[in-house]
Design a protein around this nucleic acid. Sequence first.
DNA 1: CGGTTTTGACCCGCGC
DNA 2: GCGCGGGTCAAAACCG
Length: 318
Amino acid sequence: MSNETKDLNNYHYTSSYNHYNNQNITHLPYVSGPSTYNANMISPQNGSNLHLSPQGAYDLGFELSPSSEFFSSSIDQENGFYDAINYNSSHKSPDVVGATGKSEIRVSASPSSSEADHHPGEDSGKIRRKREAGDGGEDEQRSQKVVKTKKKEDKKQKEPRVSFMTKTEVDHLEDGYRWRKYGQKAVKNSPYPRSYYRCTTQKCNVKKRVERSYQDPTVVITTYESQHNHPIPTSRRTAMFTGSVASDYNSSSLSPISDFIINTPRSFSHDDLFRVPYASVNVNPNYHHQQQNQDFHHESEYELLKEMFPSVFFKHEP
DNA sequence: CGGTTTTGACCCGCGC
DNA sequence: GCGCGGGTCAAAACCG
């Protein structure tokens, strides 16, 4: 295992962590979304860390099990959010993923306002159903009214979502936040169920969905929805910090990990590093020029993605 | 005992 | 209208 990573453009840089091994990044052709963004991935063996390459690779590492390998991610911009989710049924080359344990990240973003990007049932459960007949008729009606109104609002402004595809044996990747599972559903055409988690912090309505790809059972698709409006819970169950992260990060002029799914404070303390969901996004600037036309059907999509990942897309403007 | 997970029921949107 | 798939609720079970 070498100690370096490459991006999809063969952009080469050295990783600060020898447990990150990222070679021979392969572009996954399956994602059909209009705004996929390939980036680099990491493959931590014992926990994971924030990783920033001097050239601008920007890693949010997921904490993975020792045998985990974070290889892909996607942020969906318009339709793409479900690209990752629909990976099971829509992607065309599953073998790419499993073949060599190559690391790759695919980013696709989903805007919060796209009606076309509606996900059936999303938040629909807010409607308090009357499981049992009896008292509370008025309450039920009122509740439904409120819920419906809220639902409309939700429809109008959907939360941004990011999905990551991770090669890992564990279904639920540790990301520093506390989650409570609130549902599990069988996925059509897949033997693996999809689990639904909600952030346990009050007033934080971040959700995430976790499912395993049936095409490649070693791949877990984690989808985050909305943003945390709070810092990460203080104590981590597992240590995943290996030391050089902070210095590496501080040595970079890049902005901290962003407000998208992570909502990380601007000034990064040592502890703050733990607030980062451990994904890896390569934002090799060169990539934009070379690949933008391929992965972004419209300039605006790319711009939107930049908005959604403000810190992922480096701002080196003076 | 409080928090989390499990799991069946329920609701919604969509396609036919 | 109906069936299906997806998402959520909430009671019960589980767990530390």
